[in-house]
């Protein structure tokens, strides 16, 4: 299972194309307030993340995801389950 830091680095790359303006990403970066995503964009982004990590992310867990770090945490959990 990859370390959280590795997951984060990959997430920064995957999320970059969805950002409204270029900003510095960190674990605490808020996907809605800072990256500028709406709920539909988040769903599209989730599909890309799912393909990259070969994992399915249930919509149910997205309600707990505010930051890139939250997303990394969920991914870690999902990959541990596999």
């Amino acid at each position: 299972m990859p370390e959280k830091a590795q997951i984060l680095d990959q997430l920064y790359e995957l999320i970059q194309p969805f950002a409204k303006e270029p900003i510095e990403f960190g674990e605490q970066t808020d996907l809605i307030d800072e990256v500028g995503l709406d709920s539909m964009k988040i769903m599209d982004m989730v599909m890309q993340i799912e393909d990259h990590f070969d994992v399915s992310i249930p919509l149910n867990v997205l309600t707990d995801v505010r930051t890139i770090g939250d997303m990394a945490g969920q991914l870690q959990g999902l990959m541990k389950d596999d």
Partner: peptide, 13 residues
């Protein structure tokens, strides 16, 4: 409907 229920919900392309 899926939000009203308790199942895990995943979308496919």
């Amino acid at each position: 409907g899926t939000r009203l229920g308790a199942a895990q919900v995943v979308r496919f392309r």
